[in-house]
Each structure stands twice: as structure tokens, then as C-alpha cells.
Design a binder for these strands. Structure first.
Lengths: 242, 242
DNA sequence: CGTGCGATTGAGTTGGTTCAAGGCCAGTGG
DNA sequence: CCACTGGCCTTGAACCAACTCAATCGCACG
């Protein structure tokens, strides 16, 4: 059991992400911090949100990884997006929201419910920005699946994860804890596990990445990004209120 | 508030769609109708929204087809979603929205700006529902690209378009005007135009569809949907306020 | 009666899949 | 302390869905 050195299990990563997205006043921060203290835990493969059931609460990941997934009848599975600390689940703003996809945990996860904008109007803006960013990542996922080849898909995805881990302060030196199995990567990239494996080998052989005992490090992420024509999805200034 | 079905170029299709998504009071309907009268037109291949530029206004398609697209440096193109009458462009709800993708017209298009929720709070709910539905279609697009084969992708997409055309009253007898080229379908489904062609032939040979002189008709859409395991994305009751 | 865009068809190629067999290693129980 | 699991990763070889390249067709339009 590896314990992260920078940030203990106190929800700081999650709050850090939100405070990067919008200006939170002291009130907002302390309400959120209070929320992270009422945390819950879930094992891998737990369902945090059930597809096409009404959404009762807004959740936030504090620690661990989860995914929005959809299953086809014949067992094929597609992961729409990965959820990291600070990501919101069930972040809707209309009357009777229904979950458009299932959310399952991929690792042990700590999460909590966060107050709605009715309780604290200051949160309205962060939630809206977070929704917009989620959408941007969905668009990125669409281009990955539609127009990138296997090597580009994997590279682009790993770089996206680096970008997001940096945003919540969980990446150090282009490197972060990486709990995903190759099967999960396959369900995310629309490939088979076998082919994901071959692509990882390729990136390793080129020293683009080091992936060992649950940790992923990049040799030169900027160079790699240039090679697959990737530009960052979240440039903080674009999203913050001016 | 349901508007009649045979619809000339007066924006009724667009308003019909919105009124299916939420309860609009008379005020809202008349404000929207007024907005549709200040319409603008654009030729095919016009850019209605430029990627990564600030969004100034909220637009609504009145007639014709458009698409949210992204171009890669080497010329590859991916269409994220298609926009039909009643679909909103730049429908964001946070402080400084930036377009996450380009929007281009695919045909001659009539569109207009619609009032923000600041101008008319009753619109808040429709806009939120519309955003949620857009997201549901993005998720559908992700599963299509990630886990369906060529035949399933095309079938599923065409059925989705039928569903949406019905929602705005532009489909009669499982049949509607269909202006997309095979190249556009290819950019939407992540295939090549040549292969899209072969899949269309396949569906024709089986009498699943008739596609001729700009009109698409289905033999038995329900059966077809069952065959590719498709269930409707928008079931109206799920989205309406109770 | 060209002219040009889009649809169609054929033939060869390939990126990614499938199937199947090991290999590695952390955890468990004797 | 070691043997025995069970997950997950790795590798090889055959196969096939979709791509590429290239030619032809059809039709709407000036």
C-alpha cells in the first residue's frame, strides 16, 4: 500500500482542483472542507451512480480513481471518462437529472457529497466551469477514438492524465501514481488489452514513458505532446472569471 | 405547448424541440418566437463559432444542419456532434466561456440568437436540459466510436438522427430530409468515405434503409434498433420537470 | 456539352484483433 | 519458509475489418 507523500488523505487535492477553476471565497472553501470531512469509501468495482436512475446528490472524488462507463448487452464496455480527485459526479443543474452513464470505482475510492448551489450560491460558478471542462474532455475523447491511431490514442490519453493530475497537485516531476490496468486502458481507448500492451511496450522502448509498479513517469512530455499534436485541454486562464 | 407538425421555414421546428424538453410558459414561447424572427443565414462551410474564442452569444439553429468539429494539424477531421433545428450553440452558463470546438454549417442554415437566462429566467431550465441532452449524445458518440463496428456505427447514428428529427417534428413516417454527404458521415463515424459507402450499400441491400435524392427512410427502425442494441437517448419524460 | 463533386466499385494492404500459451508477482495458507 | 493460487502482463502467429489507391460512374448545373 503506497501512500502519497505530498498530500495525505484529506481532500486537499480535490479542493485544490476546484480552486484552480474559479475564485472561491473563504466561505466556499470552508464549506467544501467541511464536506470532505464527511467522507465515504468504496471498494474497486463499486457503483457510485447507476445509469438512468435519478440523481440524488452531487458527489466529489477525494482519493482514488473512478470512471463513467457504459456496458453493451454483449459485454463490451466503453469508458467515457476517468474521474480523479476533485472531479464531480452528478453535477447537473436542471430539475430532474437522470444519470446518463454509470459511474464505477476503479480503485479504492474516498468520496463525499458536496453542497448544491442552492445551499451556497458561490459554488454555482465552479460547478458550471467544472461541467464545461468535463465537456471539453469528452470532446477530446471523441477525437481520440474517432481519428487517432492506437499509438496516438494511448499517448494522448496518458498526457491528458498528466495534465489533470498536475491540476490537482498529484503529479511531481512529470510522474504520478498510476493504478489503471491495461484492460481499463483498453476500455477507455477502444482497443483490446493485447494491443494496449504492445503500444505501452513501444512507448517504453522509446523511453517516452516509464511505467512500473503503479507509477507512471514521462521522459519529455512536451516533446511527446508535440509528436502527437496534442495541446492542453485546460489552460487555467481560459476558464477563470476575469 | 406543442406546435403543429408541418413546418415551413419559420422556426417552429426549433421551438417545438425546446417545448418538448421543458414546460415553457407563454412568455417564454413568445420571446423565443420573436428571437426566431431576427434570423440570419449562412452558407455551407461557414463557421458559426470559432474554437477557443470567447463566446459572445447563444445561437439556435432554425433550419439546416451544422456540426461541432475539430481539425487535426494534418487535415484529419472529427465531427463531435451534429446540430439540427432547435439545437443550441454556445449554451454555457459560466462566467467566461470559451468555445471548446468549432461549429461549421453543413448546409444552408438559418439561425438566430436567443436570449440568455439573465434576460428571461424561465429559460434557465430548458437550457440546462438541453445541455444535459447534448452531453447524453456526446456519450452516445463515444460508445459508437469506441465499441461499435462500422455497420453498427452507421446504423446507430442514422437511428439517432431519426430520433432527433422526430423530436423537432421534421420526420414523417420514419423518413426525413437527409443532406449529409458520405464524407461527412465518415468524419462523424471515424471511418473513411469509401467504407461508409460500403456500409450504406449493405443497409440498402437488406432494405433497412432507403436513401435517395436527399431523403432517408427506414424500413423498420424498431427492428433495426434492436439488432444493434440501441435504445433511445431522449425519452422525453426523463428530462421534463415533474 | 463539358465540368466537377459526390457516389460507387475493385484489388491489394495493413493496423488491430483473436486465440492461445506462458510469465511475473503479491497474497495466502499449510 | 515454501508451494499454490489468481490477477495481470507479455509474446507469438494467424486472421480479418477497415483502409488505401485508383478508376469509373452519375448527375446537377452553367
Amino acid at each position: 500500500m503506497r501512500v502519497n507523500v505530498q498530500i495525505p488523505h484529506d481532500g486537499a487535492a480535490a479542493i485544490r482542483r476546484l480552486s484552480m477553476l474559479a475564485d472561491l471565497d473563504e466561505m466556499a472553501v470552508s464549506v467544501l472542507q467541511a464536506a470532505t470531512r464527511r467522507r465515504r469509501t468504496a471498494e474497486p468495482r463499486a457503483e457510485l451512480l447507476h445509469e438512468s436512475r435519478p440523481i440524488r446528490e452531487r458527489l466529489m472524488i477525494l482519493r482514488g480513481w473512478a470512471a463513467r462507463t457504459r456496458m453493451l448487452e454483449d459485454g463490451r464496455r466503453q469508458i467515457m471518462s476517468l474521474l480523479l480527485p476533485g472531479d464531480l459526479i452528478g453535477n447537473y443543474d436542471h430539475g430532474s437529472p437522470v444519470a446518463a452513464s454509470m459511474v464505477t470505482t476503479l480503485t479504492d475510492v474516498e468520496y463525499c457529497t458536496v453542497p448544491g448551489p442552492d445551499d451556497l450560491p458561490q459554488l454555482e460558478e465552479v460547478y458550471a466551469v467544472s461541467r464545461a471542462i468535463d465537456e471539453a474532455y469528452l470532446l477530446a475523447q471523441i477525437t481520440r477514438l474517432g481519428r487517432l491511431n492506437a499509438e496516438e490514442r494511448l499517448t494522448d490519453l496518458l498526457l491528458e492524465l498528466l495534465e489533470r493530475m498536475e491540476l490537482c497537485g498529484l503529479a511531481v516531476d512529470d510522474s504520478f501514481d498510476f493504478p489503471l490496468t491495461q484492460e481499463i486502458l483498453a476500455d477507455m481507448t477502444g482497443l483490446t488489452p493485447v494491443h494496449v500492451n504492445r503500444m505501452i511496450q513501444l512507448l517504453r522502448r522509446r523511453d517516452d514513458i516509464v511505467l512500473k509498479s503503479g507509477r507512471l513517469s514521462f521522459g519529455n512530455p512536451a516533446l511527446l505532446a508535440a509528436r502527437v499534436g496534442r495541446s492542453p485541454v485546460v489552460v487555467t486562464e481560459n476558464w477563470r472569471q476575469r
